[in-house]
Simulated assay, not measured.
Amino acid sequence: MSTTFKKQLSDLINRVHDLITSTRGREILLFLVFLLISYIFWLLLTLNNEVQEDLEVPITLTNVPDSVTLISDVPPSLKVSVRDKGSSLVRYSWGEVPTMKINWDNYRHSSGKFLLGTADLNARLRDYFGANSQIVTITPDSMRINYTTSPGRRVAVKVNADVHPALGWTVFGPVTANVDSVWLYSVDDLPHSLNSVETVPIVRSGLKDTTKFDARIEPIPGVRIIPDRIILTVPVEPLIARKQYVSVIGKNVPNDYTLITFPSKVEVSYLVPMSEFNSEPYVLKAYVDYNEARHARNGKLKVTMSLMPELYRNASMTPDSVEYIIEPKRAQ
Rank of each mutant, 00 (worst) to 15 (best):
T318M: 13
N122K: 10
R144N: 10
I240V: 15
L29C: 10
V175Q: 05
Y282F: 10
L207F: 04
L259A: 05
D180Y: 07
A331C: 00
N160M: 09
S93Y: 00
K285F: 13
I260S: 13
L311E: 03
I220T: 01
L194M: 14
T148I: 09
P221K: 14
R24G: 15
L35I: 02
M305G: 02
D162R: 07
R26Q: 12
G173E: 02
Y290C: 06
Q332K: 03
K212Y: 02
T99D: 02
L116A: 11
L9W: 08
L29H: 03
K79Y: 13
P319W: 05
A161P: 11
I135A: 03
D54T: 14
I249R: 07
V223R: 06
Y270V: 01
R242Q: 07
V157R: 01
E218K: 15
A166R: 01
S316D: 06
P227V: 06
L125A: 05
N146T: 04
W183D: 10
R294K: 15
L125E: 00
I20S: 02
L307N: 02
L232I: 07
K243F: 08
V90D: 04
G173Y: 02
L259E: 01
E292Q: 14
V223A: 08
S88L: 04
Q8K: 13
S67M: 07
E50T: 14
N103D: 15
P273Q: 06
K79P: 02
S133Y: 05
Y147K: 02
I59Q: 08
T233S: 13
S247R: 11
I230E: 04
T23N: 05
N195A: 00
L45T: 05
V322A: 03
S2F: 04
S111H: 08
D66V: 15
P151R: 08
P201W: 10
V223K: 09
G206E: 06
V272R: 01
N160D: 12
A315D: 00
L9R: 15
L32M: 15
V246W: 01
R154S: 14
A166I: 02
S181P: 05
W94V: 11
P309Y: 04
V155N: 10
A331T: 15
K329T: 12
D120E: 14
T4F: 09
G250M: 03
E53W: 08
V155R: 09
F129S: 05
F5I: 13
S67Q: 12
L55G: 03
G25I: 02
W183P: 04
L19A: 15
P76M: 12
W104A: 09
E198G: 00
R154L: 05
D120Y: 00
Y312N: 00
S150V: 03
D73H: 14
